[in-house]
């Protein structure tokens, strides 16, 4: 799109227009010099429909590695030889300490994350539910869960134990998905999201960009997430981990990343769009810019298998952009 078309479409979205796949695809044709304008409209859309608040969320890796699945990007897959240290389910005390630490650092929510395909016949599930009940007692932080494939009954149990939001990424588009993972189908991921939703859970679901997918795939992912009415969309940017199949994948340029966030905001005006893992390595000092390109959430602190940056820096960045983190 040229600048005039971006403005027209931006104005339409501000008036409540729901953009079509064709319109979203045209946005991907925006030339480099107009990306700041696209980002500026994404910012306006975000301020109008989602305000100036930035949702700060942390993750706790509660069980790591030895995953049976072959997701090509993942350091925790048994198919890859990486430096990520596997460990079994952490104790309640360890979980309490980890969530308390995030709460103290300013996170308003944090997710308990476990490796593995999911909770079907998983002997840890009961312990996880007990653990969630215990960490739910920590004041001032909302606990989310990210346990892979779950059934409706399990989702209902999570609701009872205090979980309001379930996190489960679609990762990429249905078309590109078989190139990323062959051990479980896309439909299984959709089924989990639908089961969680049916049980009354909000959804946090996004993916990873920079896997080698096309713009079409990215748009398709965004539209799929829109149709599922997910509340929060974490967008990871591939951090190619040595030992994974994608270790040599070339990085996206920071401007292409900004453009992606901007287009996601056009498609999902009122949702939380959250830069997640890989933002430090890929955006480098452009992380402030992405907060003015439609993003309104962050994963803060460390990620599952690699470190993030100092949480205080993210709070300063958000304030510098004229935005407001949830202040405790």
């Amino acid at each position: 799109m040229n600048s005039k078309e971006i403005i027209q479409l931006g104005e339409a979205v501000l008036e409540g227009h729901i953009i079509s796949e064709q319109e979203a695809l045209s946005l991907t044709d925006t030339c480099e010099e107009d990306i700041p304008l696209l980002a500026a409209y994404a910012n306006k859309i975000r301020v109008k429909f989602a305000g100036k608040k930035v949702d700060m969320c942390g993750v706790v890796n509660a069980r790591s590695g030895l995953c049976s699945e072959d997701c090509k990007f993942c350091a925790q897959s048994v198919y890859h030889q990486t430096n990520a240290q596997p460990f079994s389910l952490i104790s309640n005390d360890e979980a309490l300490a980890a969530f308390s630490k995030l709460s103290k650092a300013g996170a308003e929510r944090a997710s308990i994350v476990t490796s593995g395909k999911g909770m079907e016949n998983d002997p840890d599930f009961e312990r996880i539910v007990a653990l969630i009940k215990q960490v739910s007692t920590i004041a001032g932080i909302e606990i989310c869960a990210n346990l892979g494939t779950i059934s409706y009954d399990q989702a209902a149990l999570l609701v009872k134990s205090g979980i309001k939001r379930y996190a489960h990424n679609l990762e990429t588009s249905p078309r590109f998905y078989p190139a990323i993972c062959t051990t479980h189908p896309y439909q299984e991921r959709l089924n989990t999201l639908l089961a969680a939703k049916k049980a009354g859970l909000e959804l946090c679901s996004g993916g990873i960009i920079g896997l080698g997918e096309t713009w079409n795939d990215r748009i398709n992912l965004a539209l799929t997430l829109r149709s599922l009415d997910v509340a929060s969309i974490p967008i990871n940017i591939l951090n190619p981990i040595q030992g994974t199949l994608l270790e040599k994948q070339p990085p996206l340029s920071p401007l292409e990343i900004l453009k992606t966030f901007g287009i996601f905001r056009f498609i999902l005006p009122n949702k939380v769009i959250r830069p997640a893992g890989g933002r430090e390595i890929n955006l480098r000092d452009m992380q402030g810019a992405v907060m003015l390109a439609g993003a309104n959430g962050l994963i803060i602190g460390n990620y599952l298998t690699f470190g993030g940056r100092d949480i205080a820096k993210d709070f300063i960045m958000v304030n510098d952009a004229g935005l407001h983190p949830h202040i405790k």
Binding site: S3, E33, D34, L37, A39, N43, K44, L292
Partner: peptide, 17 residues
């Protein structure tokens, strides 16, 4: 308006290019 500042920045970028 503050929410329009990024638009002004985007326009300035076009002028500069």
């Amino acid at each position: 308006d503050e929410a329009d500042i990024p638009i002004l920045l985007g326009v300035a970028n076009k002028v500069r290019i």
